[in-house]
């Protein structure tokens, strides 16, 4: 114990004057060591470091362990824990109602790739401004460890049962369908995941991040391809990722020969230092080809696979007024008496 009185140091704050504690959530009820908890931590860090006001954020989710996790970060943001596989539609409605919100949709591999694949597919087509995070562990945790549709061919359950069906690669699917920022990360890769989440916040359009997140209880054993050990051995990062927020000065030059610099929608810079020669994250076809190759080589490729910061979003396409639809005044949403008179005249 200190015996001499000292002044309490001022807690560190971000650019809007909030401390990291302002981005905390409730105490997690997930298993100790669950990858999802690490993802929640990175989400807290990313929103804190980007200085996003938590009141501006919404956290829609589906059903499952992953979808419970919004309770464990950012309590000052509205959450909507909806029904199984239907987070995309709920998120879509919310963004239509108020496009000033920043939506972080949280789903799992069961919630997305099986029951929710229909809504996932159509969400990706629309380029709705939304960050879609799949906390991907290859199994249904809450129902005690059945395979999900992202489980790799030949991977084994704890009981020894082998998976006979090929996995759905949600990243390849998202790229093909129209998502404008697609990447994969690993809950254990703090630095990469944080940088990707920060870049996601800077992007306007649909961000699809598949984050491999080991299930310590049902899928972390020998024979699993979503275990901590398997990921340590097989993760192949495409790039070193660094996000320089718009509000920070750029003080480091980069070598265009080795690094791709992308200016994001909000003015931030995403710097991707290539670990592979000639990987161009703006080329859709190559991105999908590289993902398919990774499967053949038994690699878990991570990084930013595809990025298009120019595409119009769903809000642009719908030509929605700048104000939030939710709070438009009566005078805007109810046409005047003369309009009804005009219509009635046409019907006589």
């Amino acid at each position: 114990m200190a015996t001499t009185p000292t002044s309490t140091p001022m807690p560190k704050t971000n650019r809007i004057g909030l401390t990291v504690l302002d981005y905390r959530g409730g105490k997690t009820t997930l298993c100790a060591g669950c990858g999802h908890n690490a993802i929640s931590e990175r989400i807290i860090d990313a929103f804190y470091e980007m200085g996003v006001k938590p009141e501006r954020v919404i956290k829609p989710s589906g059903i499952g362990c992953s979808s419970k996790s919004p309770a464990y970060f950012m309590s000052r943001s509205h959450s909507f824990n909806a029904v199984h596989g239907r987070m995309p539609s709920v998120a879509t409605g919310a963004i239509l109602a108020n496009h000033k919100l920043l939506a972080l949709g949280v789903s799992g591999d069961g919630d997305t790739a099986s029951i929710g694949i229909g809504q996932f597919v159509h969400l990706m087509r629309r380029n709705l401004p939304l960050i879609y995070v799949i906390e991907d562990n290859g199994v249904y945790g809450l129902t005690k460890g059945q395979f999900s549709a992202t489980a790799d061919l030949g991977s084994k359950l704890k009981s020894g049962v082998s998976n006979d069906l090929p996995p759905i690669d949600t990243c390849a699917l998202a790229i093909e369908l129209g998502a404008t920022f697609v990447g994969r990360s690993f809950s254990g890769d703090k630095k990469q995941l944080l940088a990707m989440l920060k870049a996601a916040i800077a992007h306007r359009g649909t961000v699809m991040l598949d984050v491999v997140s080991p299930c310590v209880t049902f899928n972390d054993h020998e024979g699993s391809t979503k275990s901590y050990k398997y990921m340590k051995d097989h993760e192949e990062p495409l790039q070193d990722i660094n996000l320089i927020p718009a509000f920070e000065e750029i003080d480091v030059e980069y070598d265009p020969g080795t690094t791709v610099d992308v200016t994001m929608h909000d003015g931030s810079h995403l710097r991707l230092r290539k670990l592979e020669e000639d990987y161009d994250p703006t080329n859709k076809i190559n991105a999908v080809r590289r993902l398919l190759e990774a499967h053949e080589r038994n690699e878990v490729l991570t990084g930013v696979f595809y990025l298009n910061s120019q595409a119009p979003t769903f809000i642009d396409m719908l030509n929605i007024t700048d104000e939030s639809l939710a709070t438009l005044p009566d005078s805007v949403v109810r046409p005047g008496r003369e309009v009804l008179d005009e219509v009635m005249e046409q019907l006589r």
Partner: peptide, 21 residues
């Protein structure tokens, strides 16, 4: 928005209603 099915249509209604539309 013409949704992909009725499940999505009502899901969007709920999302929008929750957000105040």
């Amino acid at each position: 928005v013409q949704a992909e099915d009725e499940l999505a249509a009502i899901g969007m209604v709920l999302g929008a209603g929750w957000a105040g539309a």
